[in-house]
């Protein structure tokens, strides 16, 4: 249950913080991420989501709505929570306009991230329906990372990446770095065509 007062209080507090400290990061809205448009050929692999259900990657990404893909892992302490917070905020911002984005996190620690771990992760981030988290065999996960030009041999050297598929031409907007929720929303809306 969201407490409206708490939200308003937090926002006002933030505004005050902004007024008091000109160097506050709220002003630091200059683009800090790198954007490119790419084309990828995805492997024909079947992954397993947080409910233990099989998911065909190729059929999942297809469809007439965009899908946002990230690579994270359940026990990550640095980049992944930041990426996932971005997902949470995108969901809540779009929910206000009646939209529900399709979000897909793929683990880079398939040995540890069982459906149970992934389900608890989504719960911790209060994910709404539409955000799935998937694991698979190491070989399949490696193939997916390679297809997205995001291969890392060890999860300890990962980096922040969001990929948004444009359903009109199948291209992918590749966003490297950490975005503010406004930037993320704008990038998403750009693909949707709004």
């Amino acid at each position: 249950m969201i407490n409206p007062f708490k939200t308003i209080a937090s926002l006002l507090l933030l505004v005050l913080m902004t007024v008091m400290l000109p160097s506050s990061p709220v002003h630091a809205e200059s683009k800090k991420y790198k954007r490119t448009v790419e084309h990828y050929t995805l492997p024909n692999v079947t992954l397993i989501n947080q409910d233990g259900k099989k998911v065909s990657l190729q059929s999942l990404v297809k469809g007439d709505t965009p899908i946002v893909v990230t690579f994270i892992y359940g026990t990550c302490t640095t980049i992944c929570p930041v990426l996932s917070a971005g997902f949470v905020n995108l969901q809540s911002k779009l929910a206000a306009t009646g939209q529900s984005p399709r979000l897909f996190s793929i683990t880079i620690d398939p040995e540890n991230d069982t459906p149970k771990v992934m389900k608890e992760y989504l719960k911790r981030f209060r994910a709404k329906p539409g955000w799935d988290f998937a694991t698979g065999s190491r070989a399949d996960i490696d193939a997916v990372m390679k297809a997205f030009n995001a291969y890392i041999p060890d999860k300890m050297s990962h980096y922040p990446l969001n990929l948004i598929r444009n359903p009109k031409d199948g291209s992918w907007v590749r966003l490297f770095g950490i975005m503010s929720s406004r930037e993320f929303l704008e990038e998403y809306q750009g693909v949707v065509g709004k």
Partner: peptide, 11 residues
């Protein structure tokens, strides 16, 4: 985080 992204600090 990042200025305007509100997060739950239990995560």
């Amino acid at each position: 985080i990042r200025g305007d992204v509100e997060v739950d600090s239990s995560a």
